[in-house]
Amino acid sequence: MSLIVRITVRLAVVALIALAGTILWMLHATDARLQRGAEISVDRLERHWMYRPGLGSLGVTSSELLSGWTARASGSVVLPGVCIVVSTPTDPDSSLCNARDGLGGTVPAWFATLFERFAAPREAVVREVVFRGHRLGTIRASVDTQAATEQAWQQVSLVAGAAAGMAAGMCLLAWLAVAHALRPVGGIVRALRDLEDGADGPGATAARLPASGTAEFDDIARAFNDLAARLEHTTEERGRLTRRLFAVQEEERRMLARELHDEFG
């Protein structure tokens, strides 16, 4: 595997790990936000109940209490994703849900399973409403599972899509940047091949690598140029010694020839 591919793959893996961590954090954050919304909804309902006209008549039913709040359940009283159950001593439980905002779309089954597995455990918020020492009733708020899953999917799908696009762009830019940074490698390899293929030829050690502007490759270029210079000097010395050896051998042959001629003479 080439260095460019290896670096790009590692960047992609890091981006996927970061994306997975972000998604898990968003799942917990969405669940915590909805849980907080349940607490806020209980506080609002309690205030509306306490300030309701005719509160002195303790025989009011839970359905009468909720009838005036239904129109405001879209946000002013009961927050999206929260279900309210009101109980009074004179009336059984009456419920009011603002459970779905319709913005999350169809949630895949795998995401619903993932959300249920990694979301924080939800607990219902229970509040006893007491006015002037009289117990008026109980408010119970809980997070709707389907609404929580839809809201989480809405946020995760948007963030995941944007993050995936950014990760793809980052990998592409990293590929181009690394390819540009490693461009001097081709010249280094060619110079080494030329030095290997033509080690005995004329001018074989005259190759030099230019500076590339990158500190690491400039160090390699200086080391290569020093090696080539020493090799060139060694080659020149070897050539001089070879020529000197040939001259000495020729001189010895001439001396031997003269001695043989004189002996035969």
Rank of each mutant, 00 (worst) to 15 (best):
M1K: 12
V5Q: 13
V5L: 13
V5H: 13
V9D: 13
V9Y: 04
L11Q: 11
A12W: 02
A18R: 09
A20E: 00
I23D: 00
I23K: 00
L24Y: 00
W25R: 05
A29Y: 08
R33L: 04
R33V: 03
L34S: 10
Q35L: 02
A38V: 00
I40Y: 09
S41C: 06
L45D: 02
E46N: 05
W49A: 11
W49T: 08
M50D: 13
R52Y: 06
P53M: 06
L66G: 11
G68K: 05
G68D: 06
G68Q: 06
W69D: 14
W69C: 02
R72V: 09
A73M: 14
V77E: 11
V78D: 03
V78Y: 00
L79A: 14
P80K: 12
V82G: 12
S87C: 01
D91P: 01
S94N: 10
S95T: 14
L96D: 07
L96M: 15
A99K: 06
R100E: 08
D101L: 06
L103N: 08
W110I: 03
W110N: 06
A112E: 15
T113S: 15
L114T: 10
E116K: 14
R117H: 10
R117C: 02
F118C: 11
F118I: 04
A119R: 15
A119D: 10
A120R: 09
A120F: 01
E123M: 11
E128R: 12
V129Y: 06
G133A: 00
H134F: 12
H134E: 12
T138E: 13
A141G: 04
S142V: 06
V143D: 07
T145G: 09
Q146A: 11
A147M: 02
E150R: 04
A152F: 00
L158W: 07
A160Q: 05
A162S: 02
A164T: 13
G165E: 01
M166R: 03
G169H: 02
G169R: 04
C171M: 05
W175T: 11
L176I: 08
V178G: 01
H180L: 11
A181P: 00
L182S: 08
R190H: 12
D194Y: 04
D194P: 00
E196T: 14
D197A: 11
G198V: 05
A199M: 11
P202I: 02
R208W: 09
L209W: 06
P210F: 10
A211D: 12
S212Q: 07
S212E: 12
G213V: 08
A215F: 08
F217R: 01
D218N: 10
A221I: 10
R222Y: 01
N225K: 03
D226H: 03
D226P: 00
L227E: 10
A229D: 15
L231T: 08
E232G: 09
E232N: 08
E232I: 02
E236Y: 00
G239D: 03
R240E: 04
L241N: 07
T242I: 00
T242F: 10
R243L: 15
R253W: 04
L256H: 14
L256A: 12
R258V: 13
H261W: 05
D262V: 07
E263S: 07
F264G: 13
